[in-house]
Design a protein around this nucleic acid. Structure first.
Lengths: 140, 140
DNA sequence: CGATTCGTAACTATCAAAGTTACATGAAAC
DNA sequence: GTTTCATGTAACTTTGATAGTTACGAATCG
């Protein structure tokens, strides 16, 4: 996903079709549209229908942070959930309490770190000057 | 998983069977054995076969940290991977570079936080005195 | 109008995790 | 020593989430 967004950041002038974006990560156009729906609602990208339409960043890459992207995608920063399996068990309640506290702290920390990195930051580490060499490696 | 380990911490004297442990989280005994294999290799729990056998913590709950448990289970602290999908693409390499850096920092941070919490810490927040009331809620 | 492209629903395919069954191995009780 | 209980593990089935596919409607431009 980031891969695609950075590609869009490196060629902001022209809109790209779902088909093209899908090609970057060897997936399907519909998958791209589904995933980008959240980003559009969050005001990160914009889409245009019809001839000459496609996707573009909705604002400057400098103002798009990774934290923003994660939130828009509705993804958790931590790989575990804390839904009770045996409601009423005091042991489980204690575990969930400890885990939720950890989760709160950890998510704040990670979000803070991610909010410091923008699409432009990553784009700046591409190459240098890859946009001049055309070395995208996305043959067709 | 933590739920089970804390139960074991609150009744260290007696070994518990896979069947009993599975009951705590409404799952299957074989699933428990599979999951606990890693913990046993890490020296966190010990198992005994035969009559009167079962599972026990291999050391004091005060000395078992959540970080240790995560490592033993082979679980990542972050919910994303960074395998290349379009090898050779400079954009992707830049993205992976940025993500790997973030991952390294984040995992260190999280592991550090988790290493400060022990099974005993969580067990101490159960109740108070739940072992006197019998309020496990694990009916049978 | 016709070509293009998004939006979305409905269905199928894929894959990893959990659950199940079966049986061998080891340990205690009688 | 035989029975009983429990782990260890392989093999298979089930389940659920995600990706992929197909189809078609809506919007936009030439």
């Amino acid at each position: 996903m980031l891969h695609i967004l950075v590609h869009m950041a490196t060629s902001r002038d022209e809109a790209m079709t779902s088909e093209q974006l899908a090609g970057f990560v060897h997936t399907n156009a519909v998958v791209i549209r589904r995933a980008f729906a959240g980003l559009r609602e969050a005001g990160i990208v914009a889409s245009a229908r019809g001839h000459g339409g496609g996707w573009q960043l909705a604002k400057a890459p400098e103002t798009i942070s990774l934290a923003e992207i994660c939130t828009a995608l509705g993804e958790s920063l931590l790989p575990f959930g804390t839904e009770p399996e045996a409601p009423g068990c005091l042991v489980e309640q204690a575990v969930i309490g400890a885990l939720d506290e950890f989760r709160r702290d950890a998510e704040k920390l990670l979000a803070e770190k991610l909010s410091r990195v923008s699409l432009a930051d990553i784009a700046a580490t591409v190459g240098p000057n890859m946009h001049l060499t055309g070395a995208h490696s996305h043959a067709s």
